[in-house]
Nucleic acid binder design. Structure first.
Lengths: 170, 170, 170, 170
DNA sequence: TTTT
DNA sequence: TTTT
């Protein structure tokens, strides 16, 4: 039961490949970062401005497996979920807080995925090939660039797997 | 000012090219139909079932022009708006009601758009590639057509342009 | 599985008491009408205008029972669901279509509902009646306090006012 | 223009009175914390569990003034906005990040606000105070009634119960 | 997933 | 770190 509504809807692109981990229970946990951006014309300078917002999204269980399998760096994705602020200890022993979107629904919005390898097994989600892409001409090579090494600014540690409760309410 | 929240969020594909009209004031009004679908396994038969829902979306003013310019049959699009039920007279003189989504925000989710040039070749299927296909290394035949363009049952007349109020609050 | 997103979020007041029916299977189906309204100042006349939109909402199964039990005419409610257009035959034998919101989530937003019973004493917590309580003719004791205000852990400093840009795009 | 969608919808209660500040430009900035909570039954212990999530919400400009004027500790409110993660320096000189919801829309969901003053008379309409009205210590006259319940025009018949499918996918 |  |  919920008292209140805590809902997030994102459409954005993955900043890197998903990171999949497994809990002792065997359940999967997948983390991605998602970029959304806005651009507008600055009133004073008349300059075009842009701001990118980065979101930390976490998937659990079945959704974590699907995300790990189908999403790739650059994938465009719809994510629906809820906000959760999680506490962790910095190396200096101080408390830190990180806000994440705990996904409850995910939908791929492009068919590239970003993975050149393609599927060797059937597509459990029935996802896969893109809708809305021009179909003439030659199918093109998958262009996913090599995984960029990436420093997260202030990387919070991965959540302690043992502290996860399979009964997390979503 | 609003009393209450009336919000719709859709991600779907256009059933046809947008229809753009102009009000006497010169403001544009664009109509599209948008398909969303769900599939699930029937409990009894074990059969895969699918249901496609068709939404009537209307854009006004600047958004109407952008929609008219960039959207095409098959385009995948994010639409945010509000519900409005509109009354009209059937040929038999009887009242009829049609519910539409009045769009307040729109975002194209496939990359063809954005370019006013559009297609230089026709899309043979009328859509672009469907979603829901496996993506193996070998491009394969399109197996499931995207939601078939179809005559909307009971086509309500286009809204009477003169009855539109430029002050509609959105 | 879904191809596309079909989501509606409403906050409004019930136009009448819920109508509960039961399917042959014993499952409940509850219908309500929900009002949302907007008001704005007309540009030309300078008059305050108001438009009320009526939404047909249908609940199934367990949600239908809860809605039938706790909602009343005038109740303020949050509803999340999806659009569904349903075909039916008019008395003249002609097809008609009605668009409804099929609710997937519901939350009561007042503790008094539309029942005139209401509060007879002031609310000592400064909160009002918690959600999810029955709202029959007899007001009853508050049993679950609303979330207690508490100190935020790790209060970040207020943003530096000078760093704000008036052109922030929202 | 946006590339991507960054949308948050919250319904919750204020943890404290709003904090209003003014920018050098004279524009207002108002901060509140908002609680949403979930409760569920733990699978193993069978115990009822509850988790409250606290959200930092910031309002700008006109919305900041309205929030500062009408919201109070305990107020139930609908907030729509977008996520923004803001960087700041801890006392130890280290970077910290705080995620906030930048509100673009706000609606009060109770007529009493958090002010214990509340109503001294019963609500004749069975509705409660309309939104958007001042709610200071002195209750004032209700000026705009909530949307009047009214007969729906063109009532379609109730759905034929036998045609419902228990497997409807939601 | 659970609850009202 | 993404995308156009």
């Amino acid at each position: 039961m919920a008292r209140g509504i805590n809902k997030v809807i994102l459409v954005g692109n993955l900043g890197g490949d998903p990171e999949v981990r497994y809990m002792p229970s065997g359940n999967a946990v997948t983390n991605v970062t998602l970029a959304t951006s806005e651009s507008w014309k600055d009133r004073q300078s008349g300059q075009q401005q842009e701001r990118t917002e980065w979101h930390r999204v976490v998937f659990f269980n079945r959704l974590a497996e699907i995300a790990g399998e189908y999403l790739r760096k650059g994938s465009k994705v719809y994510v629906e979920g809820s906000l959760r602020t999680r506490k962790w200890q910095g190396q200096d022993g101080q408390d830190r807080y990180t806000t994440e979107i705990v996904a409850s629904e995910m939908q791929m919005l492009d068919g590239r995925g970003g993975d050149s390898g393609g599927y060797s097994q059937p597509d459990p989600m029935g996802y896969g090939q893109p809708q809305g892409q021009p179909q003439g001409g030659q199918p093109r090579q998958q262009q996913r660039p090599a995984p960029a090494p990436q420093q997260q600014p202030q990387q919070p540690p991965a959540p302690d797997m043992d502290s996860f409760d399979d009964d997390i309410p979503f």
